[in-house]
Write a protein that binds this DNA or RNA. Sequence first.
DNA 1: AACAATTCTGATAACGATTACATTTTGAGT
DNA 2: ACTCAAAATGTAATCGTTATCAGAATTGTT
Lengths: 331, 331
Amino acid sequence: MATIKDVARHAGVSSATVSRVLMNQGNVSAKTAAAVQKSIAQLGYHPNALARQLRRQHTQTIYVIIPSIDNTFFSEVYRGIESEALVHHYQAFLVNTNNDKNQENLFLSALVQKQTDGIISLSAAAATGVIERQVAGLPMVIACQYLEDGSLPNVAIDNIAAAKEAVTHLLDLGHRNIGCLSGPATNVLYRDRLTGYLRALAEHDIPVNMGYVSYGNSTLQSGYDRGLELLLGHPEITAVFAAGDVMAIGSMKAARRLGRRIPQDYAVVGFDDLDITRFCDPPLTTIHQPMFEIGKYSMQTLLDLIEGKPTQNQRLLEYRLIVRESTVEHA
Amino acid sequence: MATIKDVARHAGVSSATVSRVLMNQGNVSAKTAAAVQKSIAQLGYHPNALARQLRRQHTQTIYVIIPSIDNTFFSEVYRGIESEALVHHYQAFLVNTNNDKNQENLFLSALVQKQTDGIISLSAAAATGVIERQVAGLPMVIACQYLEDGSLPNVAIDNIAAAKEAVTHLLDLGHRNIGCLSGPATNVLYRDRLTGYLRALAEHDIPVNMGYVSYGNSTLQSGYDRGLELLLGHPEITAVFAAGDVMAIGSMKAARRLGRRIPQDYAVVGFDDLDITRFCDPPLTTIHQPMFEIGKYSMQTLLDLIEGKPTQNQRLLEYRLIVRESTVEHA
DNA sequence: AACAATTCTGATAACGATTACATTTTGAGT
DNA sequence: ACTCAAAATGTAATCGTTATCAGAATTGTT
C-alpha cells in the first residue's frame, strides 16, 4: 500500500504538503494541489486511518452496542442512529453481544482501546459494565433503556405509561383475566412494562394474580412456550399483554394450537410495532415506538456529549397505541 | 488516558518492558511483571489499539458488510461469522449498507483506510465495488452470493438446485399454475432462484408464462404488493414460489385479503427458513439454508486467506426442503 | 528596486505503541 | 572469586499521519 511519503516523492513535494491537500485546509497553490491529486490517483493512495486517528486523537467513529442482532426492533433504531451519524460525517459500527455478558465485556474493553469517539448502547446491562470498569469519560448514551442511577443520558419512551395504556385498552374491552408475557426481570425495560400492567389493573380495582405473569426471553419460541403454559395453567385468561411483539407472535401460535380463536377467544396486544405485526394473522394491536427517532436523537445526544455541549439527561419520545385486529370486545 | 509511558514511569521500568508484559512473550522476571501489572491496574491503563495496530501492521479485526440489517437471515449468518471469529481472537464488526450503493462506496473506502485484516461481504454488489476500485489485495470473501467472474472465494448453497427442488415440490403436489415472487434481477441470488424455477417447469414440460413472475425487493410490503398483483392479474394461479421467506409472508397476507385459504386455495413455499416461518399461520414450507454454517465457513475461508493458505474458491453447503403446512396437494 | 505582507512549502516533532539490537544483570559451574 | 551463557532490561527506530514552526517564494506598494 502506498503511503503519504510515496505520494510526496512521486509528486516531488514534501509529505506535509500532501497532508495539506488531503485535509484540504487551503494554503497550497492550485498547481501543486493538482499535481498531488494526480499522484494520489495514480498510486491509488488511501490515507491510513490508524495513523491519522492516532495523530488527530479522534476517530470520527462511534460504536453501537446491540444486545441481539436478530431483533428487528434494534435494527430500526440502528438505522436512525446511522442516518444521523452520516450527516455529521461520523461512521457507525455495530457490535452484537448476543445478550452475553462475556461478549459484552470483551467488546467494551476492545472499544475503549479502539479510541472510539463515543458509544450508544441499546442495553443498560452493557452500560453498567462500562461504569463498573471505570471507563467512564468515554461519551456514551443509552437508547431504549436507562440506568436506574441516572448516570448516563438516555432516550426512550415512557414504558410504564405505554404498557399501562396497552393493558387499559384490554380492560376497556371488558377483559378481566389478563395475562402478561414479560421479559427477563433483570431488564429495566420489562420491569417497567410489568409495572404498567400492574398499575392498569390497580386502577380498575382488579386483584393481581401473579400466576398470570410469565417471564420469557424475547424470542418467538419463548413466547410460544410461556404462552402455552399460561393458557394451560389458567384457562380463564381471555387476553394477554406481551411486553414485546416477538413474544406476542410466539404466543399467538400457542393460542391457535389450543384451538383458541384470536381475537374472539383470546385477545393479544404486543409492544414495539415491528413491521411484521402488520402481516400477522390477525394483524397485531401493539404499542408503536418511534424506533428511528429514538436512534436519531440518541445520536444527536451523543454528538452533544462529544462536543462538550450540555445535554438533556433523559429524553422521552412519544409512543402510541395502534389498534389492529388482534383485540376485540370481550364476549 | 494513561499511556504506556505512564505505566513505565509508575512501575520504574522502561516502556519496552511494559510492552513485553502486555504481549506476555516471556523474558521478563516474575517480580517486575507483577509490579507492572500492579501499575497497569492502578492507573486503569488500556493499550491504545490504534498505536498498536499501526505498529504491528495488522488489526485482528474483520468487517462484515450487510446489505440490510433488518433481515434476520443476515443476522444469523453474522452470528456464525462472529462465533468463528471469536475462537480465533478476531473481532468482527458490522456495517450496514441499507442496499444503498452510495453507502457501500463510502464504507468500502473507509474500510480500506481502517486497515482491517479482512472483509466478508454478504452482498456481491458491494464486492464488485471493491474490485473496481482496485482495492483488491485486501482479503475478502463473499457469503451467500458470489461474483460471476469467480474472482473472490465464496460460500453459499446451490440456489438453482434449491429453487428447483422447491418448485418441483409444488409440481409434485399437482400444481400447474405456479407464480414466482422474485427479488431484484440485478442480484445473482434471485437470478439463480428464478433459473431454478424455470428449470423445474421445463423438466415437467410446463410452458413458461413470464407474467407469472414478479420482482419485489425482499420486504414484507413488496411481498404483499407483488403477491396481490399476481393473484389479481392471474387468478388461475394456485401456488407461488417466493424467493425469500420475507416476501412469502407478505404474499400470504395478500392471499388472505383476497379470501384465498392457505394452503387449500393457494400453496406457498418460501426460501431461507427464517425462525418466523415456524410461527406463521400456517407454518411455511421453505428451503432451509444453513445460515450459521455459511457464516462460520466464510470466516474460516477468510482466515485462510489472511494467513496466505490455499483456499477453496467456491464452497457449496447443504440445503434442504422443509415441508410444513403452507403447501398441500392441489385440489 | 526595495520592502513588507502574504502565501506556500519543508523539516521535524509528536501521537502511543512494538521490536531489533545493545547492554546490563543474574546465576550456574568451576 | 571468575567466567560465560542466558535472562532481563533499556535505547531508539519505526509504523503513517498531522501540526507547529520557520524559511522560501510570491505578490503588491511605493
